[in-house]
Structure formats: C-alpha cells, structure tokens
Amino acid sequence: MAKSFVQEFTKGLWTEIPPFRLVLGLCPTLALTKSLENGVGMGVAFTFVLILSNILISMLRNVIPKQVRLSCYIIVIATFVTIVELLMQAYAFPLYQKLGIFIPLIVVNCIVLGRAEAFAAKNGVIPSIADALGMGIGYTLALGTLAAFREIFGAGTLTFPFINYSIHNVLGSSYKPFTFLVEAPGAFVCLGLMLCVMNMLGKK
C-alpha cells in the first residue's frame, strides 16, 4: 500500500502491462492493431476513460455501497466512454470511423472495470491517477508495438497517428506484404510471439 507514485506508474509499463501480463482487454488488442494509427488511437481513448473513471471511483469509494459497486462502476465507466465517443465524433471523425464499434466496447473492457475494482476502490485519488496513467500508457505502448509490427510486415506501410502522415514501402518496394498478419489469425500469432518475447526477457 505504501508504494510511491512512480512505482504505481511504472508497474503498468512492464511488470503488469495490461494485454501481455494481465492478458485482459484482448478483444480490441486483436481487432484494432491493423495499423499503428488505429492502435494508438484506441490506446489514447482507453487511457482517457481509465484515468477519469479511476479518479471518480477512487473519490467515491467510501460512498459506493459494496452490494451495488459493480453497477455503479459500470455507470461511471459507460458515462465516460459515451463522452469520449461524442468528443471523438466532434473532433476526430476519421479516427472515429475507423475505430467504430470498439469505442463503445471500452465499457466492457475488463481492464477498466478491473482497475476500478482492484485498485481505485481501495486506494486514494493520487495513486489511482498514477495507476491509470501507467496502465493506460502501457496499454497504448502494447497496442502500438503490436500494430506497428503487424502493419510493417503485413501491409508494408506505417501510418503515424494524429499527424496524417504515412510511409509506404517501409521495407523497400520489392517487399511482398505478408497479408496473413493483418488478418485476425495473424493477430493471435503476433500476440503469442510478443508474449513469448516478453517472457524470455523477463526470465533474466
């Protein structure tokens, strides 16, 4: 309980990095990592929701009765998700078109509810912010890495988020894209490889 702000923050980046270590929130991880832009966009939307819901739930943790805590958490999370969805439609419409149904699905993303239940409900506001930031950035990094890998090898391109810029033929024009990687089964294979690398590095 007496961990510092930095410790709460950094655990989300490596030791408990959400999709790899906690193996939660896999649905968008598999579906939205076809391009770097989509992956990072999803990560940012997710981080925003996670920070806000962690703050609010941690503030209200003594008000919410145990018996109805899950419904209260879901109401809070769903509200923030809808707000993010509306803001995205208003200010980042092209990204909203790409992410589509996966934005409302953040509501049922286990990481957000998981962090609310496992962390924000037991800790103060400041550690909860640190936890949300770490988890959110960790999730964004994980999605970004997976997406960049799949996009470079699967399509041969790389689209950067937010700046509307993309490189064609990252691996040279003679590279034949390995399209299997941008298909859904390719996502599983890539995720498995990432887990494998993470475990090998973690053993030392």
């Binding site: 009765p65 109805v68 109401i75």
Partner: peptide, 11 residues
Amino acid sequence: IKLFLIVTIFS
C-alpha cells in the same frame, strides 16, 4: 432503499 437511491442518483 439506500442502495436503490444511490444507483438512482448515479444514473
């Protein structure tokens, strides 16, 4: 009633 009220307020 208290639980009911709290969830109502949240909604």
